[in-house]
Design a protein around this nucleic acid. Sequence first.
RNA 1: CGAGGUGUGGCUCAGUUUGGUAGAGCACUACGUUCGGGACGUAGGGGCCGGAGGUUCAAAUCCUCUCACCUCGACCA
Length: 565
Amino acid sequence: MKLKNQFFYTLRQEAADEDSVSSNLLVRAGMIKKSSSGVYMFLPLGLRVLKKIEDIVREEMINAGSQELLMPSLIHEEIYEKSGRAAAFGPSIFKLNDRYERPYVLGPTHEELFAIAAKMKVNSYKDLPFNIFQFQNKFRDEPRPRFGLIRVREFIMKDAYSFDKDMEGLDESYSKMFEAYKNVFDRLGINYVIVKADTGAMGGHLSEEFQAVCDIGEDILVMCDNCDYASNLEVAEVVSENSEKGVEVEIEEIHTPNAKTIGELEEFLGIHGENFLKTLVYKVDGELIAFVLPGDRQANEVKIGKMFNALTVELPEPEEIEQGTNGVVGYMGPIDLGIKVVADTSVINNKNMITGANKKDYHIKNVSVPRDVKYAMSGDISNIKEGDKCPNCGGNIVFKKGVEVGNTFKLGTKYSKALDLTYAAADNTLHPVVMGSYGIGIGRTMAAVVEQSNDESGIVWPMNIAPYKVYIVVIKNTDEAQMEAADKLYSELNALGIDCILDDRKERAGVKFKDAELIGIPIRVTVGRGISEGKVELKKRTGGDMEEVAVTDIVAKIQEIVKNA
RNA sequence: CGAGGUGUGGCUCAGUUUGGUAGAGCACUACGUUCGGGACGUAGGGGCCGGAGGUUCAAAUCCUCUCACCUCGACCA
């Protein structure tokens, strides 16, 4: 591309309405522009990056045996009713009516449509397995879009779906996709980890997430400092030592005025958090249930939801709790609370604990869980903490933050059953098809790369996905020798398939250098006064010194850098 | 959905308290000087101040309603 008369601009100042490094740089580089909250335009330069990421993903998907197709965005709401996901997605789903008031949605994800499409093809076990994918815009009405392309309401996702006759087949299809995903993120040069995750609204048996490690990540990655254990916080198992703690003594009431939180109690009594029983009331599918866990741990709503196979787990309003239980908010305790109590596994043997007295300004001490707490169920309902023991090897748990750029689900038969996608086995009996689904957020991946790869001058694109590989700066566009040499280099590189920008604008050199750096082009060639001696200058975006290179060698040199990148 | 904040030229912002003919920097145009790391000078162009009502002789400024965006929380594949 020759810059003159192209849709190309850069901004010198940060955008007022962007909140992350990546979104600011992408906006300043003229690659994207916010259109409304959580909705972005992709401008020419940004679109090139997006397409390059798509190309890599597409290549790996096809290599893994998947076929590309394209589904609509506009979908009858009915099919999400059938699968039960209209409720699961709730208000995140964009809804609209057609002129006859028939309800439609803008597809938030496409398991249903793919299952329906698969019915066209699948009759017999001989029709399985197969795998199909698409790049398509998804719509999710996020309560709070943020971080530029990272959490948006309309986004391009590559979604693939596998169809198998049984779990063994799914395992095989799944591992093919899993390998393809590793190839994709390796080629993109992303620093990522793969973690076990919650299946959430997707349902199914297993979910793993590909998480780009970076500080603005909204997911907490639970890692072990000793082995390769990696999990999303949502599902990381807490290994309870289950040891007995303390001796049994008579319960005693203690006066604790205005000490409502564990923190306040710790200060008031001078006792550490783990000696308290924290009692939280959640509304699980509408029912108030109390959860008892150690004072120094956070409740895990995903685990709670799973325990009850619930659609919603929410914290009720304080008034609602006090109406529905015998407790007083701030002084809640599990004894005689009047509702179902669930105990975290780690507390069921504890004695000599402090908990709320269900009475304003009072707590009770010497509570023995086995003796005093009548719990209906127990299980792992808390979040793992840094410093906890690794469930795998006993090493120490550490946290990192991640952006989920890809995920893989073993769906099983959830959608095939709901939508009646069945096949005839060899014995002529009907069985539901076993499905898997596999997503990669293309725009989010683009943002994650920028988030991980930038410096004070701007973006640093990896060679693979840079919008252009070479940026040719012509110092003086009125100098014929310079223009001629630059033009020649430009056409030679293009002929070799090395896409480049020729900056032929009437700008001062400094402006061109700054722009080249801001938009992150990996190689910069400067054609300037050295041309009289047959020399140009070469500089890599990733650093290193500027190098003088003979015009006759420059193409070969660039080819080499591109090849070795 | 709760709390708070912001909407003024393409961009980043001042002006609003105390009503009186719309400003700055960057960007843009012309000319001159400069010319290898976001140049300088001079002269210009461009905004009915998010929108709708209202108060007033007079509203960017005060009042009411509304829309959009942002932050924190709730929520979130």
